[in-house]
Amino acid sequence: MPRRKTLPTALTTAAAVTALMLAGCSSSPTGEGANGSGSNEGKPSQAQSATVYDFPLNGMEPVGKGEQLTVVLPDDLKQAAGKEASSVVVESFTVSSHKLQTAEYCAVDISVEFVSDDAKKGLLNSYNKVENLSDLTDGQKIAHATLYRGEIATLDELDETNPEEGIYAADDGSQIVQVADCASSPQDDDADITLGFSYPGTRNSLGDSYEVYKDFVKANLAVMTDGSVSVASTDTGDWTRDSSGKWIKD
């Protein structure tokens, strides 16, 4: 069974802290969704509209009910970082609230979009070279590389009525659900829901299961009992936006 995550809380950069409200979670009233269904349950649907979060300088306005949040690696950061960002394999994450049959925890659905099919295949192949990770499903490998480098459960282990904290991945990676403590505010990142824009670790680190993939930048989410999801904090490493919004290295 999944264990509570122990990743440290990511550093909050002055250039990238924002709170994006995304309605439609477990205990909120059902509203008219972006796709007309009035609900945002289950895995993120491409038919639903999404608000894009690209690590802005001054944050973003709240989004409407039923919408999704897509967190992307900004093109201008890729250009500024050059070779440093060229090996990142994740293009974006699309998240939406997940309805549990209990008010004890909150949850989000997470969909991972890769920069290319080759990048995804390369990630899966790299895990096949690590003895204690090669038997994982594709979904567990994807979640391990991009969300949490620890124990990942399979989706059929998720008990919607009595869930445990942790990450649950469909075998093919098409749906990933993270169950976590409900946040006390949109800026509360203690739940450790961390989206990592990952790149391959060095050959010498492949023997360490925690170093198969590393993170170039990270975004930490908060999900509240009223159904809102926000980017609570970010860690952009050595990079930050200056007062004009351009990326510079600290």
Rank of each mutant, 00 (worst) to 15 (best):
T9H: 00
T234I: 06
T6A: 09
G150K: 10
A50R: 10
G31C: 00
A183Y: 05
V179D: 03
Y210T: 15
T194Y: 09
P74G: 07
Y168Q: 07
S116G: 04
E164D: 13
D226Q: 07
P74Q: 08
G122C: 00
D188A: 14
P8R: 06
S97F: 04
N35Y: 02
I152T: 08
V88E: 00
F197M: 12
T161K: 11
D208G: 08
G36K: 12
L77D: 03
F114R: 06
L124V: 15
S26M: 03
T12N: 09
E160P: 04
E131M: 01
K121S: 04
P200A: 11
A107Q: 03
A219Q: 08
A103V: 07
S87T: 11
T6R: 14
M21P: 07
L20I: 10
G166T: 06
T102M: 13
L69H: 00
Y105E: 02
A23G: 08
S198V: 15
S96R: 09
G150E: 09
S228P: 00
P186N: 08
S184H: 04
T6H: 13
G150W: 13
K99M: 03
G173M: 06
G207Q: 04
A232I: 13
Y168S: 09
G33W: 01
A183I: 06
D54Q: 07
Y53W: 09
S185W: 07
D54K: 08
T194I: 15
A119I: 10
V231I: 04
I193G: 05
L20Y: 03
P74N: 11
G59W: 14
A34W: 03
T13K: 01
A15T: 15
D159W: 12
S243G: 09
D54W: 07
V71D: 06
S26W: 11
G196P: 01
Q187M: 15
Q46I: 09
K218W: 10
F114N: 02
K65W: 02
A183T: 03
L133D: 12
A232C: 14
G64P: 00
F216Y: 01
C182F: 04
T225D: 03
S185M: 09
T137A: 15
A16E: 10
N35K: 05
A180F: 05
G196L: 13
T51S: 03
